[in-house]
Amino acid sequence: MSVNEKFSSLRKGLLEFLVLKVIAGDKVYAADILQELSGTEFATQEGTLYPLLSKLRREELVDYEWKESEAGPPRKYYRLTAKGREQLQETLDYWQKINATLKNLGLKSRP
């Protein structure tokens, strides 16, 4: 089992956090999010993203507004809510902690 496969469920769990992080930068619409994730290990597709976005909205972590696009139907632009920002910060802090733990484990000189 490759590393890639081994961590697929981890990546899946993390996707929500990453989407929050992408949205935190600026008001974005779904294609922007996919675009930003596409180069990374977390590349995903609309089929996964839209249900996730709607779940985040239901949990009141994100909000959206309609904007007319140059051509075609109007688009939903997403942004974080205060609650979303809070949760993102919490997750970031927690992630830092995990990182630190990862770095420090095994390094302590044993008596």
Binding site: R11, A43, T44, E46, G47, P51
Partner: peptide, 22 residues
């Protein structure tokens, strides 16, 4: 194909979401 299969994220047991893992 580009859209990918629609997966309900509320459903924790569905297959992993990234295309290369499925």
């Amino acid at each position: 194909a580009e859209m990918g299969p629609v997966e309900d994220t509320a459903d924790a047991d569905t297959a992993a979401g990234t295309p290369e893992s499925t």
